[in-house]
């Protein structure tokens, strides 16, 4: 379920904590597993639990608590836009309308071809750059507008 490469990455995270505190690496381990599988199926979470020596339920608790884990497939490119107040004051609401229309989906939906998923974010801590779009949790795009969106979609599809 987990590749050797993923396990090596998890080992690097485990090294940050005392040897008897392997559970501290669970958030990183889930992130690494999600990067590999796109979403956290029960099997993937069980593999993480086994690797860290944790009860599976403790891993599910973490995966369901934090917002950036995908508990269902969210498309090849999950797009999250922050719509919180500071961003809303700077065009995020309008940008989301553009994005929804362009992709033909609403929040928490995935396009029929499985390419794009859309999520509404809470606060990214980047309010000065609004509107802000995150691709697959890790790639942040600031000051978004329609033109930048077209360029980004083209790049992601290729």
């Amino acid at each position: 379920m987990l590749s050797e490469q993923a396990k090596r990455k998890m080992d690097a995270e485990l090294a940050k904590y005392p040897a008897d505190r392997r559970q501290s690496a669970v958030m990183s381990a889930l992130r690494i597993a999600q990067d590999e599988h796109d979403w956290l199926s029960r099997e993937v979470m069980d593999a993480v639990a086994a690797y860290l020596g944790m009860p599976a339920i403790a891993v599910y608790e973490v995966a369901t608590f934090y917002e950036m884990y995908n508990l269902k497939p969210m498309g090849r490119h999950k797009m999250t836009v922050c719509t919180n107040l500071p961003c809303a004051l700077s065009g995020a609401t309008e940008f989301c309308e553009t994005l929804k229309k362009r992709l033909g989906i609403d929040f928490n939906e995935v396009t029929a071809d499985g390419e794009f998923g859309l999520k509404e974010g809470q606060c990214f801590g980047a309010c000065g750059d609004a509107p802000v779009l995150l691709v697959n949790n890790h790639q942040m795009h600031s000051f978004m507008d329609e033109e930048k969106l077209e360029a980004l979609l083209k790049e992601l599809k290729s």
């Binding site: 940050k16 904590y17 501290s24 958030m27 990183s28 889930l30 992130r31 608590f65 934090y66 917002e67 950036m68 884990y69 809470q122 606060c123 949790n137």
Partner: peptide
């Protein structure tokens, strides 16, 4: 010193 990465929880 070590960095720990959160994953979305205010």
């Amino acid at each position: 010193l070590f960095n720990h990465h959160g994953y979305g929880a205010y």
